[in-house]
């Protein structure tokens, strides 16, 4: 054992920073969180063991239910919205018919560069019920004012729009890089065989993009389940658009219920774990087909 370490000390040394940091700043905190989740603790003094109380309270707390459903919605809306738009934009950018290619590509990436917090402040103003430009436009077209951030029904929409608006370009680039890797010869051969654009898309592009799409889905999953900035900066009434992670932050650092917040964190970790296992399982099955 020691000998192996000594013999291969250089590669081990090179990769060690990651593992040390992972241990100290991720693994230990997560184990510790699990411990705190069985206690009641205000941060000062020592934690009091309360067993499963925090988990029991969680099942009765409508704010947790709200946060869970909201985050689930953000996840689904993220997967569908982001992948759809990213794919469409990437296909356009990849098209040989598109002029000013470089301009479009550069400009459509800009949202990703903009800080979500700053954009959140801006979207908050644009979506303001009385003074916002969006409602003004809706009224010009004969509609009624929409209570974007002042009703539970609508308050999730600005959050979804902001999140998707900002993140889509990132996935556009990733998908585009996948498209660029598909050899043109496939399409040329298909054209010779008389396949139209739609057929080409479904029989060539989609199968060859599967890996990339899977990677995108995994990333969007993690990003949406730990969403914080967007819903934090665009609050709706009560917990109507609170994300799960935002609720954790608020329970921990606003009302200082660290035990309860930790229990929520444990649930968040479990959710991510389950989703990724399911995604990998589905993929393995597809891989075998």
């Amino acid at each position: 054992m020691f000998k192996t370490l000594k013999k291969y000390r250089i590669p081990y040394l090179f990769i060690s920073p990651f593992f040390v940091l992972f241990l100290v700043f991720q693994l230990i905190p997560i184990i510790w969180t699990t411990f705190i989740s069985f206690t009641e603790w205000k941060g000062l003094g020592s934690p009091v063991w309360v067993g499963l109380d925090n988990y029991r309270l969680m099942t009765q707390d409508y704010m947790v239910a709200d946060a869970f459903w909201n985050t689930l919605l953000y996840w689904i809306a993220g997967i569908i919205g982001i992948l759809l738009f990213a794919l469409m934009i990437a296909l356009c950018l990849n098209s040989s018919r598109l002029k000013f290619h470089k301009f479009f590509k550069t400009a459509s990436f800009l949202p990703y560069v903009c800080a979500s917090v700053a954009m959140g402040l801006i979207f908050g103003m644009l979506f303001d019920e009385n003074a916002g430009l969006i409602n003004e436009i809706i009224i010009t077209f004969g509609g009624d004012r929409v209570p974007w951030l002042t009703s539970s029904a609508f308050s999730k929409i600005p959050v979804i729009i902001l999140f998707n608006w900002r993140i889509t370009p990132w996935f556009t680039i990733i998908i585009l890089s996948g498209l660029l890797n598909i050899s043109r010869e496939y399409y040329e051969a298909a054209t010779v065989d008389g396949a139209n654009i739609v057929q080409q898309f479904f029989y060539i592009t989609v199968p060859l993009l599967r890996n990339i799409m899977f990677f995108c889905m995994l990333t969007i999953t993690v990003d949406t389940w730990k969403m914080f900035n967007e819903s934090y900066i665009l609050p709706g009434p009560g917990s109507s658009n609170t994300s799960l992670f935002q609720l954790i932050y608020q329970s921990a650092f606003k009302t200082f219920k660290l035990g309860y917040a930790s229990a929520l964190s444990v649930i968040l970790i479990l959710i991510l774990l389950v989703i990724s296992i399911v995604q990998f399982a589905i993929r393995r099955r597809q891989g075998e087909v």
Binding site: M63, P237, G238
Partner: peptide
Amino acid sequence: SAEIEKYVAGE
């Protein structure tokens, strides 16, 4: 406050 906010939102 969360309950009042839902009230103001008309829910």
